[in-house]
Protein backbone atom coordinates (compact mmCIF):
# COMPACT_ATOMS: atom_id res chain seq x y z
CA UNK A 1 0.00 0.00 0.00
CA UNK A 2 1.35 3.37 -0.89
CA UNK A 3 1.79 5.75 1.97
CA UNK A 4 0.07 8.40 -0.10
CA UNK A 5 -3.44 7.05 0.22
CA UNK A 6 -5.15 7.35 3.54
CA UNK A 7 -6.35 3.95 4.60
CA UNK A 8 -6.27 2.60 8.12
CA UNK A 9 -3.50 0.08 8.60
CA UNK A 10 -4.39 -3.49 7.76
CA UNK A 11 -5.03 -5.67 10.79
CA UNK A 12 -5.40 -9.36 11.47
CA UNK A 13 -6.06 -11.39 8.37
CA UNK A 14 -7.02 -8.40 6.26
CA UNK A 15 -6.16 -8.79 2.65
CA UNK A 16 -6.41 -6.53 -0.36
CA UNK A 17 -9.11 -7.48 -2.86
CA UNK A 18 -9.83 -6.19 -6.35
CA UNK A 19 -13.53 -6.37 -7.10
CA UNK A 20 -14.91 -5.79 -10.55
CA UNK A 21 -18.55 -4.77 -10.83
CA UNK A 22 -20.67 -4.50 -13.93
CA UNK A 23 -23.42 -2.05 -13.19
CA UNK A 24 -26.36 -0.70 -15.17
CA UNK A 25 -26.02 2.94 -16.25
CA UNK A 26 -29.04 4.03 -14.28
CA UNK A 27 -29.82 7.03 -12.17
CA UNK A 28 -28.22 6.69 -8.76
CA UNK A 29 -26.46 3.39 -9.46
CA UNK A 30 -23.01 4.74 -8.70
CA UNK A 31 -24.22 6.38 -5.48
CA UNK A 32 -25.83 3.17 -4.40
CA UNK A 33 -22.53 1.34 -4.54
CA UNK A 34 -20.36 4.10 -3.11
CA UNK A 35 -23.01 4.69 -0.43
CA UNK A 36 -22.99 1.03 0.51
CA UNK A 37 -19.27 1.16 1.34
CA UNK A 38 -19.82 4.28 3.44
CA UNK A 39 -22.92 2.98 5.23
CA UNK A 40 -21.39 -0.38 6.13
CA UNK A 41 -18.00 1.06 6.96
CA UNK A 42 -16.06 -0.94 4.38
CA UNK A 43 -12.66 0.38 3.29
CA UNK A 44 -12.08 1.71 -0.19
CA UNK A 45 -8.44 1.93 -1.33
CA UNK A 46 -9.48 3.02 -4.78
CA UNK A 47 -12.56 3.14 -6.93
CA UNK A 48 -12.73 3.64 -10.66
CA UNK A 49 -15.69 3.74 -12.98
CA UNK A 50 -15.94 3.95 -16.73
CA UNK A 51 -17.81 2.73 -19.79
CA UNK A 52 -17.60 -0.81 -21.19
CA UNK A 53 -18.20 -2.45 -24.55
CA UNK A 54 -21.93 -2.46 -23.68
CA UNK A 55 -23.33 1.07 -23.57
CA UNK A 56 -25.94 0.17 -20.94
CA UNK A 57 -23.28 -1.04 -18.55
CA UNK A 58 -20.35 0.53 -16.70
CA UNK A 59 -17.51 -1.22 -14.98
CA UNK A 60 -16.46 -0.23 -11.49
CA UNK A 61 -13.24 -1.52 -10.07
CA UNK A 62 -12.96 -1.29 -6.33
CA UNK A 63 -9.86 -2.10 -4.35
CA UNK A 64 -10.83 -2.87 -0.79
CA UNK A 65 -9.51 -4.79 2.15
CA UNK A 66 -10.89 -6.94 4.89
CA UNK A 67 -10.83 -10.42 6.36
CA UNK A 68 -12.66 -13.26 4.64
CA UNK A 69 -15.99 -12.68 6.35
CA UNK A 70 -15.97 -8.95 5.59
CA UNK A 71 -15.15 -9.62 1.94
CA UNK A 72 -17.90 -12.25 1.80
CA UNK A 73 -20.40 -9.66 3.08
CA UNK A 74 -19.10 -7.02 0.64
CA UNK A 75 -19.64 -9.44 -2.26
CA UNK A 76 -23.13 -10.35 -1.07
CA UNK A 77 -24.11 -6.76 -0.44
CA UNK A 78 -22.84 -5.70 -3.87
CA UNK A 79 -24.81 -8.50 -5.49
CA UNK A 80 -27.86 -7.34 -3.59
CA UNK A 81 -27.78 -3.86 -5.12
CA UNK A 82 -30.52 -3.99 -7.72
CA UNK A 83 -28.42 -2.32 -10.44
CA UNK A 84 -25.42 -4.66 -10.31
CA UNK A 85 -25.30 -7.18 -13.14
CA UNK A 86 -22.15 -9.06 -12.21
CA UNK A 87 -19.73 -8.88 -9.31
CA UNK A 88 -16.37 -10.65 -9.48
CA UNK A 89 -13.62 -10.82 -6.89
CA UNK A 90 -10.57 -10.88 -9.15
CA UNK A 91 -8.29 -11.65 -6.24
CA UNK A 92 -8.94 -15.35 -6.66
CA UNK A 93 -8.29 -15.25 -10.39
CA UNK A 94 -5.40 -14.19 -12.46
CA UNK A 95 -6.02 -10.67 -13.68
CA UNK A 96 -4.40 -7.82 -15.56
CA UNK A 97 -4.40 -4.45 -13.90
CA UNK A 98 -3.26 -0.93 -14.65
CA UNK A 99 -3.00 2.24 -12.68
CA UNK A 100 -2.12 5.62 -14.16
CA UNK A 101 -0.47 8.48 -12.31
CA UNK A 102 0.37 12.02 -13.31
CA UNK A 103 3.17 13.20 -11.07
CA UNK A 104 4.26 16.83 -11.04
CA UNK A 105 7.79 16.92 -9.65
CA UNK A 106 9.80 19.94 -8.57
CA UNK A 107 13.00 20.37 -10.51
CA UNK A 108 16.18 22.32 -10.27
CA UNK A 109 18.61 22.40 -13.16
CA UNK A 110 20.79 19.83 -11.46
CA UNK A 111 17.97 17.36 -10.75
CA UNK A 112 16.05 17.40 -13.99
CA UNK A 113 18.12 14.81 -15.78
CA UNK A 114 18.05 12.45 -12.83
CA UNK A 115 14.27 12.67 -12.78
CA UNK A 116 14.13 11.97 -16.47
CA UNK A 117 16.35 8.93 -15.97
CA UNK A 118 14.06 7.55 -13.31
CA UNK A 119 11.10 8.07 -15.62
CA UNK A 120 12.85 6.17 -18.35
CA UNK A 121 13.62 3.23 -16.11
CA UNK A 122 9.92 2.95 -15.34
CA UNK A 123 8.99 3.52 -18.98
CA UNK A 124 7.12 6.61 -17.90
CA UNK A 125 6.69 9.66 -20.13
CA UNK A 126 7.39 13.31 -19.56
CA UNK A 127 4.26 15.08 -20.70
CA UNK A 128 4.84 18.60 -19.45
CA UNK A 129 7.85 20.60 -18.50
CA UNK A 130 8.46 24.08 -17.03
CA UNK A 131 11.49 25.81 -15.50
CA UNK A 132 10.59 24.46 -12.05
CA UNK A 133 8.60 21.28 -12.76
CA UNK A 134 8.27 18.20 -14.90
CA UNK A 135 5.10 16.16 -15.11
CA UNK A 136 5.55 12.44 -15.44
CA UNK A 137 2.90 10.05 -16.72
CA UNK A 138 3.37 6.60 -15.21
CA UNK A 139 1.30 3.60 -16.22
CA UNK A 140 1.55 0.12 -14.82
CA UNK A 141 0.57 -2.14 -12.03
CA UNK A 142 -0.30 -0.40 -8.81
CA UNK A 143 2.99 -1.63 -7.36
CA UNK A 144 4.99 -0.18 -10.21
CA UNK A 145 3.26 3.17 -9.88
CA UNK A 146 3.84 3.08 -6.12
CA UNK A 147 7.50 2.46 -6.81
CA UNK A 148 8.05 5.39 -9.17
CA UNK A 149 6.23 7.69 -6.77
CA UNK A 150 8.54 6.55 -4.04
CA UNK A 151 11.56 7.23 -6.21
CA UNK A 152 10.38 10.72 -7.15
CA UNK A 153 9.30 11.75 -3.70
CA UNK A 154 12.73 12.99 -2.53
CA UNK A 155 12.71 15.62 -5.29
CA UNK A 156 9.44 17.03 -4.02
CA UNK A 157 6.10 16.08 -5.49
CA UNK A 158 4.00 19.21 -6.06
CA UNK A 159 0.84 17.49 -7.24
CA UNK A 160 -0.27 13.97 -7.87
CA UNK A 161 -3.30 12.58 -9.70
CA UNK A 162 -3.91 8.86 -9.84
CA UNK A 163 -6.71 6.87 -11.45
CA UNK A 164 -6.74 3.93 -9.09
CA UNK A 165 -6.70 0.38 -10.33
CA UNK A 166 -8.63 -0.85 -13.34
CA UNK A 167 -8.56 -4.57 -13.89
CA UNK A 168 -9.84 -7.39 -16.09
CA UNK A 169 -9.67 -11.13 -15.71
CA UNK A 170 -6.69 -12.53 -17.56
CA UNK A 171 -7.51 -14.90 -20.40
CA UNK A 172 -4.01 -15.84 -21.60
CA UNK A 173 -2.28 -17.78 -18.89
CA UNK A 174 1.27 -16.85 -19.89
CA UNK A 175 3.14 -13.56 -19.68
CA UNK A 176 2.33 -10.89 -22.27
CA UNK A 177 3.80 -7.47 -21.92
Amino acid sequence: MSELTATPAAHGHDRKHTISILVENKFGAFNRIAGLFAAKGYNIDSLTVGPTEDDEISRMTIVTRGDDSVIEQIMKQLNKVINTVKVTDLTYESFVERDLALIKVQTKTDTRSEIMQIAEIFRAKIIDISPRTVTVEAIGSEQKVDAIIKMLKPFGIKELARTGRVALKREFQGEVN
Partner: peptide
Protein backbone atom coordinates in the same frame (compact mmCIF):
# COMPACT_ATOMS: atom_id res chain seq x y z
CA UNK B 1 -35.82 12.07 -1.17
CA UNK B 2 -34.17 9.58 -3.51
CA UNK B 3 -30.81 10.42 -1.93
CA UNK B 4 -32.24 10.47 1.59
CA UNK B 5 -33.91 7.08 1.27
CA UNK B 6 -31.23 5.29 -0.74
CA UNK B 7 -29.85 3.40 2.27
CA UNK B 8 -33.31 2.52 3.63
CA UNK B 9 -35.07 1.31 0.51
CA UNK B 10 -34.66 -1.93 -1.34
CA UNK B 11 -34.56 0.27 -4.41
CA UNK B 12 -35.76 3.69 -5.48
CA UNK B 13 -36.45 5.59 -8.69
CA UNK B 14 -36.72 9.10 -10.02
Amino acid sequence: IVGITRPITKHNYL
